[in-house]
């Protein structure tokens, strides 16, 4: 059975794009429009990988990422960040959050900045899922 990959992004264009990439590479795509829906899908569908946007209106990617990395069940679930936010800004937000809430979270396994080349995305997914 092909592996399940969840795309969490509020931009329908990105979802269409990533879904197509996943289908082309024989993965099963799952989609969510924001962080809250993303968490629901993770709990119900149990994906093998999450591709996560950072800035979304409801339940941002930052929050979802933190919830996953501090949750025993999902600590090892691989996450690819796919966002327009520069890595530097993302790391800074993590640092601020760590100071504010306590508890360091590991930096994302893979951090891809939009716009991403389809080949780079595929390579990152394959590396994670083997």
């Amino acid at each position: 059975m092909s592996k399940k990959v969840l795309v969490v992004d509020d931009d329908p264009d990105v979802r269409t794009f990533v879904i197509t990439v996943l289908e082309e590479n024989q993965y099963t795509p799952l989609v969510a429009q924001d962080g809250i829906e993303g968490m629901e899908k993770i709990e119900t569908e149990n994906p093998d990988l999450v591709i996560l946007d950072v800035l979304m209106p409801r339940g941002s990617g930052i929050r979802l990422y933190r919830s996953l990395k501090t949750d025993e069940r999902y600590k090892t679930l691989p996450v690819i960040m796919l966002t327009g936010i520069a890595l530097r800004s993302f790391l800074k937000s993590q640092k601020v959050l760590a100071e504010f809430k306590g508890g360091e979270v590991p930096i994302p396994d893979v951090y891809l900045e939009k716009p991403v080349e389809p080949e780079d995305l595929v390579e990152a997914i394959q590396k994670k899922l083997g």
């Binding site: 931009d11 264009d13 990105v14 990533v18 197509t20 389809p118």
Partner: peptide, 21 residues
């Protein structure tokens, strides 16, 4: 703006990929 433009770019890039497929 850079963020917004990146979103436009990924839309264009993603769109062309989907058209190619």
């Amino acid at each position: 703006l850079a963020h917004y433009i990146k979103n436009i770019l990924i839309g264009l890039k993603g769109g062309s990929y989907v058209v190619d497929v």
